[in-house]
Write a protein that binds this DNA or RNA. Structure first.
Length: 425
RNA sequence: CGGAGAGUAGUAUAGUGGUAGUAUACAUGCUUUGGGAGCAUGCGGUCCGAGUUCGAUUCUCGGCUCUCCGACCA
């Protein structure tokens, strides 16, 4: 993509009100735009990152047998009354149509998915199965805060699984848990599986995926030795207390919840009469699980966990572009022209390179802007945070080379253009 | 919802009961080109409403919006 033509507008300063790091850097870098409190647009750069996160999630959900669907955000009141959540769900946005008929803007989709499923004759032979979607959720939060970490409208992946019995549900729960860890790993996050309350769903504990950072709103107590971790809401344990599993000292830390998986059991199938026919020919309640993950929150968490004072350092697999190619003008017009010609050649060549197991095309953002100083181009590249920075200038060309630098490294290397791709492996 | 803070140009800021200033960004021209370059010119602003006043961006009241703390959180 040519930066001179792209809708990428970086800012030197963040709006003074924005305190959270994710909001500051994402706004300054032109990744997002705030419409109102807790409601954001994703601009070209941000949307590219979001699409990559979505791609990872989709791959991993498909890998555990999830079938992707899309459910409506607009949901009739009657559905929510079936589970008593029209009144008990305090974050529910309620809207009326011109006939005064009431609807909810979906904050989650247990009701809708259960309604879909119950309309179909199901046999034990159909079990288990799992459906998921990636969709915009609406929650009238008491307080939107922390940039895109707690919005009132946000993108979420929600998976729902259906089983003939509790043992199978438990088995699948563990499968999804592993898939979640793989997703977070690919997104460059170190997630800690944390025991938490089942909330309104269940008396059983749920599992949260927590990323330790000071920007977190949760406090978790964890053991570095055996991996035991609990949300503060479940425990009185403090730093230094003995781990109940292995006896080693526990550590308290702030963390961001990037995912949460729940045991639903028959909570919804019972309230909404969702059955399947078992081997013995009798109707039984579906046993369910649900598994949530906020994509926009994952994105914000990545920024909180991966940045320095100059900007964002995107993990490789979700960087908006693999490489940020920068051309620097020269004082001599003729030489400048040659530098631009060579940079354009490099851009065209890099765009045809395939990388990774999947042999996908390398994605390059080419800063071809004229009249922009080297300092500004470097500053922008650091802020935007693509994995690799490649510089073509009179200086590098004098040696027949280009410069390559990893965003996470401090030093650059001069290499022949031919070796650039090799450097990126 | 309770508490605190803040609303002046796209962004960041100054200031004043009497024609609103600076930086940056944007536009134009010239110069410059390895860490947010320089000069010149231009464009652009007091959140909304009421009150006090000859006159309000400034004072008073009300509203709206944003941020932070708290409560809450599938």
């Amino acid at each position: 993509m040519l930066q001179s033509q792209a809708f990428i507008k970086t800012k030197r300063e963040a709006p003074k009100d924005e305190v959270s790091v994710n909001a500051q850097l994402l706004l300054r870098g032109g990744f997002i735009d705030k419409l109102t409190s807790g409601v954001y647009s994703f601009l070209p750069l941000g949307f590219r990152v979001l699409a990559k996160i979505e791609r990872i999630i989709t791959q991993e959900m498909d890998a555990v047998g999830g079938q992707k669907i899309l459910m409506p955000a607009l949901q009739p009141k009657s559905l929510w009354e079936e589970t008593d959540r029209w009144v008990s769900m305090d974050v529910l946005y309620k809207v009326k149509d011109r006939q005064e008929k009431e609807f909810a803007l979906g904050p989650t989709h247990e009701e809708v998915i259960t309604d879909i499923v119950r309309k179909h004759p199901l046999s034990y032979r159909d079990m288990p199965f799992a459906l998921y979607q990636i969709q915009t959720k609406f929650r009238d939060e008491l307080r939107a805060k922390s940039g895109i970490l707690r919005g009132r409208e946000f993108l979420m992946k929600d998976l729902y699984s259906f089983h003939a019995d509790e043992a199978d549900r438990q088995r699948y729960y563990e499968t999804v848990k592993k898939a979640y860890l793989e997703i977070f790993k690919r997104c460059g996050l170190k997630a800690i599986v944390t025991e938490a309350s089942g909330g309104a769903f269940s008396k059983e504990i749920s599992h949260e995926f927590q990323v330790a950072t000071d920007a977190g709103e949760d406090i978790i107590v964890s053991c570095a030795s055996c991996g035991f971790a609990q949300n503060r809401e479940l425990t009185e344990a403090k730093t230094g207390d003995a781990c109940p599993k292995c006896g080693k000292p526990l550590t308290e830390q702030k963390a961001i919840e990037v995912g949460n998986i729940f045991t639903l059991g028959t909570r919804f199938s019972q309230a909404m009469k969702a059955f399947f026919t078992d081997k013995d020919g009798t109707e039984k309640l579906l046993v369910m699980g649900c598994y949530g993950m906020g994509l926009s929150r994952v994105l914000g968490t990545v920024v909180e966990a991966n940045h320095d004072d100059r900007g964002i350092i995107w993990p490789k697999e979700i960087a908006p572009f693999d490489a940020h190619l920068i051309v620097l003008e020269s004082k001599d017009a003729k030489e400048s022209k040659r530098v631009f010609t060579e940079a354009k050649k490099a851009y065209d060549a890099l765009g045809k390179v395939t990388i990774g197991k999947e042999k996908r095309l390398l994605e390059v953002l080419y800063d071809d802007r004229k009249g922009v100083s080297p300092g500004q181009k470097f500053a922008d590249a650091d802020l935007v945070g693509c994995t690799w920075r490649i510089v073509v200038s009179a200086k590098t060309l004098a040696q027949g080379k280009v410069e390559i630098k990893k965003r996470s490294d401090t030093t650059a290397k001069l290499v022949a253009f031919k070796s650039v791709v090799k450097e990126m492996h």
